[in-house]
Design a protein around this nucleic acid. Sequence first.
DNA 1: TGCTATGTTATTTTT
DNA 2: TAACATAGCA
Length: 687
Amino acid sequence: MSRWLKNLNPEQREAVQTITGPLLVLAGAGSGKTRVITHRVAHMMELSIDPQQILGVTFTNKAAAEMRQRLTGMVGQGASKVTLSTFHSLGLHILRAERARRKRSGALSVFDTGDQLSCLRELCHRIHLERSLDLGSILQRISAYKNAFVEPGDSVASEDPYDEAATLLYPAYQEQLQAYSAVDFDDLVCLPTRMMEQSDACRHRWSDRFRHVLVDEYQDTNAAQLRMLRAIAGPHRNLCVVGDDDQSIYGWRGAEVRNILRFAKDFPGAKTVTLGRNYRSVGSVLRLAGAVIARNPERHEKTLVAVREEGTPVRMVVTSDGDSEARWIVSHIREALAGGRRGGDIAVLYRSNLFSRELESELRAEGIPYRVLGGTSFFESKEVKDLVAYLRICANPADEISLRRVINAPPRGIGPRTVSTLSDWSEKHQTSFYQALRQADEILGGGRSATAVAGFLELTDRYRRRLGQGSQLAPAARAHGRAPLRAPERLPDVARELSDELGLEAQIRQTPGTPQAADRRVARVRGLIDGMQSYCAHAPRPSLQEYLGRIALSSNEDDEPVGRDLVTLSSLHGAKGLEFRLVLLAGMEEGYLPHERTINPHQNDMEGGDIAEERRLLYVGITRAMDELVLTRCQERMLRGRPQPRTPTRFLDDIGPELLQLDDLTLPPDHEQMQSMLADLIARLEG
DNA sequence: TGCTATGTTATTTTT
DNA sequence: TAACATAGCA
C-alpha cells in the first residue's frame, strides 16, 4: 500500500485513491480536506505521475502556499514541481504564455478594483453620464456580464438604470482596457478561457500540460472559472474538486453554489465522496452548527459526525450595549490567557470589520497583543500605489491610469487643466495619453506645464531604461544593435532611488496627520522595497513584469508572519479555513447577522440579499471553534451615532438550552450566582 | 493650488 | 460617529 494511504479514514482514502475521472469531494468543515488534497498529490507522485502535470487551484495565495508547504513536508523538493496557483495567477500565466506564442510580448497591467473605478470614472466623465450613479454597482454588473461571457455590445434588456449604464459602459470600458494594455481580475479568467474555447490547439496545449487538476474551495467558483476548468480538464476529465456547499459565502461576488451542487451533471460519471467525520470541534459546537445549517434548503444533505468528546456547552452571552459586549469579550480573553491558553489559539469573529475598532481599543487598554485580518490591504495604501504606479509606467507606458495617478504626484505643476487638455487631444487624435504627453510641447504650445510634462517623461524614461524596460519602446534600435540594452539594475535599488528622487518620505512627513501615521506610511514604502528585495532574492528569474503581476494578485496576509501569541480579530469571511481553540462570535443580532443590507437590499444592489448565505456565514463561524465557543450579543448598540435597540438573530431561534446556554448579564444575578460571587469574594479576602 | 467647510454614507472583499 | 469626498473659497 502506498504510504500515503495510511492514517486516513475510509472516505479520505477513497478520495485519495481515485485519481482518474471526475471526482467530487464533499468535505464538511474540519473533515481533513487539506489532508486529502495533499495526500492525493503525494499519492499520485508515488504512482509515478509526473508532478509537472499536476495542477492545484486555490482562491488565495495563502492557501496555495500552505498547500505547498505541507506537500514539501511530505515529499520534499519534488513538491516544487507541482503547479499550485490561484485561478488568477494561473490565468495570467496562460495569458502571458499565449501572448508570447503570438509574438505579442508587450507588458500587461493588471488592474485592481481601484484602477477599474478610475477607468470608469474617466469614462463617465467623458460621456457626461449622470454622476449620481454608484460606480461600484456599475462595475459589479460589468463583472457579472464578463463572467457570463456576455460580449461587449450584446444588449441586456432591462429597465434598471444600473443595468442600462453597465450595458452602455461595458464596451467602452473593455476598449479602454485594451488601449491601456491592461486586464482586470475577471479578464484573467475569461480571456484565457475564451482562447482555449476558441482554439483546439490552445486548449490541448493546456490540458496536456496539466493532466491532473485539483480544485480547492470549489463552492466559491463562478461561472467563468467553471468554464476555465472545463477547458483545461475537459479532454482528460481528471478533475477533482473539493468543497463544502455549506461554506459558500461569496455568492455576492458571483460564486455559484450551483457549481458544486451540479458537479455530477457538469461532469457525467463523476464519483462523489463525502467526508463526514469532523476532527476539529467538540460535540457541543458541532451539534449547534448542525442545527443552524440544517434549516437551509438546497444543499447536499450531510451530517457531520463528531470524533471528539462533547466538550463544554456553547454559551450565548447577552450584554446591555456594544461597549459592555467588547469589554466582556476582552475580559473573557484575559481569563482564558490566565488559564493558560495562548493568544494564537483565540479568535473574535464578527460580520463587519467596523466591529474590530471597539475590540482593538479594549485589547490595547488591556495590553493583549492581537492581529486584525482583512481591512485595507498593503498594496491598496496610497503611498504604495503611487510608487507602484511609477513602476507600472516603466513596464507599460500605455497604462493611462497609472500615468494619471502620478503625473502630478508629487506636485510638479501639472494641474487638472493640463491633464484634460492632453487627454482631450489624445481622444481627438485617436491616440494614447502617453503619446499626448510626448507631444505636450506642441499641444500646449510650450509654457510652464509643457516643461513640467517633459520633466515627468524624462524621469520615467530614465527609470524605464534603468529597469531594462526600454525594448518595446525602441524596437528599431534594438534590431540594429545600436543601443544594446544595459543589464537592468536591481529592482529594489532602482526603486529606492526613485523613491528618494521623488522625495516620497519627505512628502509623507509633510502631509497632515499624526507623526505615528506618517511613520506607518513611510514604513509601508520601505516595506514595499524590502518586498522587492526578497522577491529578487527568491524568484528564479526576477523581472519587473513578473513582480508587478505578482503584487497585483497578492493580498496583504500572504507572507505575514503569524505570531503564536496574537489574538486574531477577523470578519467571518476572513476566518474561513482557519481554526481556533476558543472562538468568540460577536454581534449575534438581527441587522448584523443577517446583515441589514441583506434583509433590505439597496435598489442598486444586483440581486436580492441571500439570507441563506448569511446563515452559512454563521455556520462557518461556529465551525472555526475547536474547544470552546461563545456567542455574544447586546440589547442596544450605537449605530451611526444613534443608539438602536437590537434583537437576537433569527438563526438561533428555537435553539434549545441543550444546545445553547443562555447567560444574560443584564439580568440581576440569581440566588445561585450571588452565592458563588460571594464565595469568590470571601476566598479573595481570605487569600 | 491648496486648504477648509460641509455634506454624505455607512457589508462581506479570496484576486 | 467617523471617514471620506466634493465644493467653494482664499
